[in-house]
Design a binder for these strands. Structure first.
Length: 832
RNA sequence: GCGAGAGUGGCGGAAUUGGUAGACGCACUGGACUUAGGAUCCAGCGGUUAUAUCCCGUGCGGGUUCAACUCCCGCCUCUCGCACCA
């Protein structure tokens, strides 16, 4: 019978669906396992990256099920977002229609791959039944002070017609369309994620075992904690003061001038009436109008201009000229930097350029720095000099003492600065969840009442060709009544960033149907946290940071008693073709649907898992998938050929006596069978090394091919073959489930493999009668020797080694100094 | 610059606590079967060599050890993240 994957696969997919085989329910009596893959954006078609992601997840889910866990394995759609709108504009179809059509299409594609999802739990974030709860969270966060409105310069993408979060600006470009991001003053809604900076950083320690080092370090960098101090420098005339943030308060005696960001609010006041006022204004204007890339480029030359004003160093009393400098960032710290040329490279270069004085206040251990001979700043440790009462202290000790002094004398304080900024969630686009807030002339900014939710995104709007949101032109939407006073009011027309939806969808899966609350408390408690999360590393900061924040914030408004959402994280590598990432723009994509029609879902799944370990990138090759197809067909031929004589049985259940009756080859096959189970179990459990687990099964199949003709002829042989084939199919079933179910059934397997227990092996079956001992002379392999497995006597092993002819040849003329015998492994003869 | 990861045949990749480097697959070569083979089955396949049980070989240079892809020290290269962060 010919292997026909299309027929087999659709047959089993129907059986699984009709029998509800992947449905799961919370059951306190059973250990749970929540296996989650990052849900896709419904862009139209499943791509190879999805296939890889979801194949990894499906193997884990099926494996855990076989191990007896109650497995939650859901799927849904991250359905709001810009591409839907853009496609809608391009094809003149409503974003909702486009999105739902894509979802329907992609759902079919996922089903065609045989993934074991509980489809009853499917969520689509664009439906009111989902986003109503997010609107509720918004209101509750607002009550808690976790959401606020602020006017500030924002990242504006002119092509997408919307603001972007800091996390969505990559190298000064929009993360979606690569347009240069502009700064625009706008009043926006912010989530106070910085309130959780400390906790988001500290709790990374809970993830050290389960998350990749790389992701942890990226999150840590992004949060960016700097411990230091604020120091107040009064202006010369005493009228005002400049506060700086520094991590090097120990160098304050060396602060010789002050650098302000061009945007610093004091600049205009400082130059007022000064002769250089106009020049400074021009400089500020020029710098502020530079685009973000040019301005933050590391090749940008340091430039500045003197304001004509001075401030006073509170420690030395020295008059410090105040400069405006292009490298000082308005948004970090206080937008003002005390310049210590001797101990900061940027200040050093700046001082050199503008001939500003340099004063050394920290001397390293083994040399004495002189300002005249320094070619670069010294930023290492050392002893304080010329620093008043602090001279002679180590710089670390001085940091503490100077901070104490600041606090005692009210000239500053210890403080911590974060790189993390609050999360701007306002988007000036249509296809998103409406922000549930109303602007009332009487009452001001008023959140909606929870009982008025959901605020439904109107579907009968006409999208603008340029991408602007139609909501501000839709009176039926924005005209409303104030929830407080009942008078006419105007509804907020910005929508929420789609990352809000994806920050809690994993909790909604635990009971996706509940319509009286966002979560079913019991189900949430049972299923969360996610035991294994799988997705691309491109979400290492954005989605994972927001989700971690959300769980903590929801906990604090009483929704989930949970610290972290994802206990373990697997970041799969990219799918490459010809060495480059598969992408439409490069034109090097491979369509999963075409591959499925050509080779079948089992082969596609197998190849994705076999070609490389999950965390690494993998290069799609035509010959590679053909190799996978060859193996799948080889299993098919093996079982169909043996089928008349063998039967489905418990894996690894043929007895040692049965194997012995077939001689050494029988013993060897039984050993291989048990060893395969051991290796596959270890590889999957400890490191998700699917490639080596599959390789182990390939070895077993190769072994079966070598003995099948001979073993078929005897009853004992058929018994042993039955066991080994049963083991093969069971172990392979999470990878190529359709093939295995079909073959299992063909040899009389009663129940389905997906409900079978993961096989166990017998340690005793792994013991050989004779083991091969490696003979070495001075660490080099000089021969091999078969000895009885029970031979553990070192003296005997040594004697055997020394008696070996080859060992003898390599020790001629040498004196044997030592013999090291490791029973079961090797004997090393040391001679010189 | 800071942080993380990686470097092994022609290629993808194996090698559990230091103990036979190159499992498994791809590509290639040979054989069998065949009217045919781009199907299938069997075998070979790091370099060097006429062959070998010789010699060389896991980015480079040292070291520890009876023994190092593995541990230590010092470098080089690549990938990713952050970055005039004060």
């Amino acid at each position: 019978m010919k292997y026909d994957p299309q027929h087999i696969e659709t047959k089993w997919q129907e059986i699984w669906e009709k029998g509800n085989h992947f449905h799961c329910e919370a059951d306190a009596a059973k250990p749970k396992y929540y296996c989650l893959e990052m849900f896709p954006y419904p862009s139209g078609n499943i791509h190879m990256g999805h296939v890889r992601n979801y194949s990894i997840g499906d193997v884990i889910a099926r494996f855990k099920r076989m191990q007896g866990f109650n497995v939650l394995h859901p799927m849904g759609w991250d359905a709001f977002g810009l591409p839907a709108e853009n496609a809608a504009i391009k094809h003149n179809v409503h974003p909702a229609k486009w999105t739902h059509a894509n979802i329907d299409n992609m759902r079919l594609q996922l089903k065609r791959l045989g993934y074991s999802y509980d489809w009853r739990r499917e969520v689509a974030t664009c439906i009111p039944e989902y986003y109503r709860w997010e609107q509720l969270f918004f209101i509750k966060f607002m009550e808690k002070g976790l959401i606020y409105r602020k006017k500030a310069p924002q990242n504006w993408c002119p092509s997408c017609h919307t603001v972007l979060a800091n996390e969505q600006v990559v190298d000064g470009l929009c993360w979606r369309c690569d347009s240069v991001v502009e700064q625009k003053d706008l009043t926006q809604w912010f989530v106070r994620i910085t309130n959780y900076a400390e906790e988001l950083l500290a709790d990374l320690s809970m993830l050290e075992k389960g998350w990749p080092e790389r992701v942890l370090s990226m999150q840590k960098n992004w949060i960016g904690k700097s411990i230091g101090a604020e120091i107040v420098f009064p202006l010369e005339d005493g009228a005002d003061a400049i506060t700086v943030f520094t991590t090097r308060q120990d160098t304050v005696f060396g602060a010789m001038f002050m650098s302000l960001a061009p945007e610093h609010p004091l600049v205009e006041k400082l130059i007022d009436g000064k002769p250089q006022a106009e020049d400074v204004r021009q400089f500020v204007h020029r710098i502020r109008n530079m685009d973000r890339i040019a301005r933050t480029s590391d090749t940008l030359e340091k430039e500045g201009i003197f304001t004509g004003a001075y401030c006073v160093n509170p420690f030395t009393g020295v008059k410090m000229p105040i400069w405006v400098a292009n490298f000082v960032l308005a948004e970090y710290g206080t937008g003002a930097v005390m310049a210590v040329p001797a101990h900061d490279q940027r200040d050093f270069e700046f001082a050199a350029k503008y001939r500003l004085p340099v004063k050394v206040v920290i001397q390293p251990e083994n040399e004495t720095l002189q300002p005249e001979t320094m070619v670069q700043a010294y930023d290492g440790p050392g002893t304080l000099v010329d620093s008043g009462e602090f001279s002679g202290l180590s710089n670390e000790e001085a940091k503490r003492r100077i901070a104490d002094w600041l606090e005692r004398n009210h000239k500053g304080r210890r403080t911590v600065n974060w790189r993390l900024r609050d999360w701007n969630i306002s988007r000036q686009r249509y296809w998103g969840a409406p922000i549930p807030v109303v602007y009332c002339d009487e009452c001001g900014v008023v959140p909606e009442k929870p009982e008025n939710l959901p605020i439904i995104l109107p579907l009968d709007v006409k999208t603008h060709p340029d991408g602007r949101s139609p909501l501000p032109d839709t009176p039926a939407f924005y005209e409303c009544r104030c929830p407080k006073c009942g008078k006419k009011a105007r509804r907020e027309t910005d929508t929420m960033d789609t990352f809000v939806e994806s920050s809690w969808y994993f909790m909604r899966y635990t009971d996706a149907g509940i319509d009286t609350a966002p979560f079913n408390e019991k189900a949430l408690k049972y299923w969360m946290p996610v035991d294994q999360y799988i997705g691309g590393v491109e979400h290492a900061i954005l989605h994972l940071l927001y989700s971690r924040f959300f769980v903590k914030a929801l906990r604090d408004i009483g929704y989930a008693d949970l610290a972290e959402p994802f206990s373990n994280l697997l970041t799969q590598g990219m799918v490459l073709k010809d060495g480059a990432k598969m992408s439409k723009s490069k034109g090097n994509t491979v369509e999963p649907s075409e591959m499925i029609s050509k080779y079948g879902a089992d082969t596609v799944r197998l190849f994705c898992l076999f070609a490389a370990p999950p965390e690494r990138d993998f290069d799609w090759t035509e010959s590679g998938i053909e190799g996978a197809f060859r193996f799948v067909s080889r299993v098919w031929r093996l079982v169909t050929e043996l089928q008349p004589g063998i039967r489905a049985m418990e894996p690894c259940s043929a007895s040692a006596d049965t194997a012995d009756a077939l001689g050494p080859k029988g013993k060897e096959l039984r050993l291989k069978e048990h060893a395969t189970v051991k290796k596959a179990t270890d590889d999957i459990t400890s490191r998700f090394q699917f490639n080596t687990a599959i390789a182990a099964v390939m070895e077993l199949v190769n072994a079966l091919y070598l003995v099948k003709d001979e073993f078929q002829k005897s009853a004992a042989g058929r018994e042993l073959l039955s066991s080994a084939v049963s083991t093969t199919l069971t172990v392979l079933s999470p990878f190529t489930p359709h093939l295995c179910e079909e073959l299992w059934q063909s040899i009389g397997g009663g129940a389905m493999l997906l409900n079978a227990s993961w096989p166990t092996f017998d340690e005793k079956a792994l013991v050989r009668d004779e083991v091969e001992i490696v003979l070495q002379v001075n660490g080099k392999v000089r021969g091999k020797l078969l000895v009885p497995a029970g031979e553990t006597d070192k003296k005997n092993l040594e004697a055997l080694a020394l008696a070996d002819a080859n060992v003898g040849r390599h020790t001629v003329g040498l004196t044997v100094r030592k013999v090291i015998a490791i029973p079961g492994k090797l004997v090393n003869v040391v001679a010189n």
